[in-house]
Lab assay of single mutants.
Amino acid sequence: GSPLAQQIKNIHSFIHQAKAAGRMDEVRTLQENLHQLMHEYFQQ
Score class of each variant (00 low, 15 high):
22 G>C: 08
29 T>C: 15
43 Q>F: 07
34 L>I: 04
26 E>Q: 09
16 H>I: 12
15 I>G: 00
31 Q>Y: 13
44 Q>S: 12
31 Q>W: 10
18 A>C: 11
5 A>E: 14
40 E>L: 08
9 K>D: 04
22 G>R: 04
26 E>M: 09
20 A>V: 11
37 L>P: 00
35 H>D: 08
24 M>R: 05
17 Q>G: 04
21 A>G: 06
21 A>P: 01
30 L>E: 01
33 N>F: 15
8 I>H: 00
31 Q>M: 13
25 D>Q: 08
40 E>V: 06
16 H>E: 15
29 T>R: 15
2 S>V: 13
17 Q>F: 04
3 P>I: 13
6 Q>M: 05
19 K>Q: 11
31 Q>N: 05
2 S>E: 13
18 A>M: 08
43 Q>I: 08
15 I>S: 00
40 E>M: 08
13 S>Y: 12
14 F>M: 15
4 L>K: 03
27 V>Y: 06
31 Q>I: 14
31 Q>E: 11
11 I>V: 08
28 R>N: 05
10 N>K: 13
38 M>D: 01
1 G>P: 11
12 H>Q: 13
12 H>A: 07
31 Q>K: 10
36 Q>D: 07
10 N>F: 06
5 A>V: 13
2 S>P: 12
33 N>V: 15
35 H>G: 04
43 Q>L: 10
6 Q>L: 05
39 H>P: 01
11 I>Q: 02
3 P>W: 14
41 Y>C: 15
22 G>S: 03
35 H>I: 12
8 I>Y: 01
37 L>W: 02
12 H>Y: 13
19 K>G: 03
26 E>V: 12
8 I>N: 00
32 E>Y: 06
24 M>H: 10
42 F>R: 07
17 Q>N: 08
32 E>M: 08
38 M>G: 01
4 L>T: 05
39 H>S: 07
35 H>S: 08
21 A>N: 07
18 A>Y: 02
32 E>W: 05
15 I>R: 00
26 E>L: 14
5 A>T: 09
7 Q>Y: 06
11 I>Y: 04
28 R>M: 09
8 I>S: 00
6 Q>R: 05
23 R>D: 08
39 H>C: 15
33 N>S: 13
23 R>H: 08
3 P>V: 12
23 R>A: 05
19 K>S: 06
9 K>W: 03
20 A>W: 03
13 S>P: 00
39 H>Q: 11
10 N>E: 14
4 L>R: 03
29 T>P: 02
16 H>Y: 05
43 Q>K: 11
32 E>C: 13
5 A>W: 15
44 Q>M: 10
32 E>H: 09
33 N>G: 07
19 K>D: 03
18 A>G: 01
5 A>K: 07
9 K>N: 06
26 E>C: 14
16 H>L: 11
38 M>P: 00
18 A>W: 02
4 L>E: 03
5 A>F: 14
26 E>Y: 04
39 H>V: 11
40 E>G: 03
22 G>L: 03
25 D>K: 07
23 R>T: 02
11 I>F: 04
30 L>A: 05
22 G>V: 02
22 G>K: 04
15 I>F: 01
31 Q>P: 01
38 M>C: 13
21 A>T: 05
1 G>N: 13
20 A>S: 08
37 L>Q: 01
30 L>G: 02
13 S>K: 14
6 Q>Y: 02
6 Q>V: 09
25 D>R: 05
4 L>G: 03
44 Q>P: 07
10 N>S: 11
2 S>G: 12
41 Y>V: 05
9 K>R: 09
42 F>A: 08
32 E>V: 06
14 F>H: 15
27 V>H: 02
28 R>L: 10
29 T>V: 13
7 Q>W: 14
28 R>A: 10
9 K>S: 07
12 H>L: 15
19 K>P: 00
24 M>T: 07
